[in-house]
C-alpha cells in the first residue's frame, strides 16, 4: 500500500472513532445541563438529574429487574453453552453439523423475528409474559455466544489433560469439574460478561416478552417515546459507564488468557 492510502485509511479510522464516541460524549454532557430542554448550547451545569435518577424508584426497580434477568439468564446460558460445547468438541458423529447449526441458530435470527417467535412459543406453552419469559429468551439467545467462546478455548486444551485425570482415577464427571472446568473458567468469565451485557442491553426481546414491569432499556424506550427528558441522559450515562467498565474488565481477563496460552 502506498503512503497516501495509508494516511487515508488512518483518517477513516479516526473519523469513525469520532462518529462512534461523539454522540455518547454529547449524551453524557447533556446529563449535566441545568435545563429541562435537551439541546445546545449548555449555559449552566447541575447534578440534579442524577439526584432525580437516584430518587426515581421506577428507574431503580427497572435497574434491579434488568440485573436479575441478566444474572439468571447468563447462568442458564453458561451452563447450557458449556455443556453443548463440551459435547460437540473432539468427537465426530452423524448429525453433529445439524446440532451445531441449531446451536448457533438463535444468534443469526433477526431480532424482531426471534422476539416474536419467543412470544408465540411462550404463549403456546402457557408462559405468562414477564421475568421468566424474558430470562428464557435471553438465555436461549445467548447460548450460541457461550458455545463459540468455550469451544474456542476447549480446542486449545490438550486432550491429555482429561485423559490424565481419568487415568488417575477420576470418572468423566469428576474429571470435568476438576480439570476441564478450571481450564475453561477464563473463557466462561469472558463469555458470561458478554452474555450479561447482551441481556442487560437487550430491548426487543424484553419488549415483546415483558409484562407490566419494564427492564431498564424498555423503560428508557418508553421515556423516549413520551418525550426526551434530561433524566434519560443521566440514566444512560450511568449505564454506559457501568457497561464499559464491565466490558473492559472482561476484555482484560480474556486477553490475559490468550497471553498465558501463547506463553505456555
Amino acid at each position: 500500500m502506498t503512503r497516501n492510502t495509508r494516511i487515508l485509511m488512518q483518517c477513516i479510522y479516526w473519523a469513525f472513532v469520532i462518529y462512534l464516541l461523539v454522540p455518547l460524549f454529547l449524551m453524557m454532557l447533556m446529563g449535566f445541563k441545568d435545563s429541562k430542554f435537551i439541546g445546545f448550547p449548555i449555559k449552566s451545569w447541575t447534578l440534579d438529574w442524577y439526584m432525580t435518577v437516584f430518587a426515581d424508584t421506577a428507574v431503580l426497580q427497572a435497574f434491579a429487574y434488568s440485573m436479575v434477568i441478566a444474572v439468571v439468564s447468563t447462568l442458564i446460558a453458561l451452563t447450557m453453552g458449556t455443556w453443548i460445547a463440551v459435547a460437540l468438541t473432539g468427537r465426530s458423529f452423524w448429525g453433529r453439523a445439524i446440532i451445531l447449526g441449531l446451536t448457533l441458530l438463535p444468534a443469526i435470527i433477526p431480532g424482531v423475528i426471534s422476539a416474536i417467535a419467543f412470544r408465540i412459543a411462550a404463549r403456546v406453552v402457557g408462559m405468562e409474559p414477564g421475568m421468566w419469559a424474558i430470562i428464557w429468551s435471553h438465555a436461549i439467545h445467548n447460548v450460541p455466544f457461550v458455545v463459540l467462546v468455550v469451544m474456542a478455548r476447549l480446542s486449545t486444551m490438550p486432550k491429555s489433560y482429561a485423559e490424565a485425570a481419568r487415568d488417575l482415577g477420576a470418572d468423566p464427571i469428576i474429571a470435568f469439574f476438576r480439570v476441564s472446568l478450571p481450564y475453561l473458567t477464563p473463557a466462561m468469565i469472558g463469555g458470561g460478561v458478554f452474555c450479561m451485557l447482551l441481556s442487560f442491553d437487550d430491548f426487543v426481546r424484553s419488549f415483546f416478552l415483558g409484562g407490566y414491569e419494564p427492564t431498564l432499556p424498555v423503560l428508557i424506550f418508553a421515556k423516549l417515546r413520551s418525550g426526551m427528558s434530561p433524566e434519560i441522559n443521566a440514566i444512560s450515562t450511568i449505564v454506559l459507564v457501568l457497561t464499559a467498565l464491565l466490558g473492559l474488565w472482561a476484555e482484560r481477563s480474556m486477553r490475559g488468557l490468550s497471553k498465558r496460552a501463547s506463553h505456555d
Binding site: 491429555s160 485423559e163 490424565a164 482415577g169 477420576a170 478450571p182 481450564y183
Partner: peptide, 20 residues
C-alpha cells in the same frame, strides 16, 4: 474397564500436568 477403574497409570507425552 475404563481408565479410572484400572490400577494402571500413565506418564503422558506432554506430561499433561494440570496447569491449575
Amino acid at each position: 474397564l475404563p481408565p479410572n477403574k484400572r490400577n494402571v497409570n500413565m506418564v503422558f507425552q506432554d506430561y499433561a500436568l494440570f496447569p491449575n
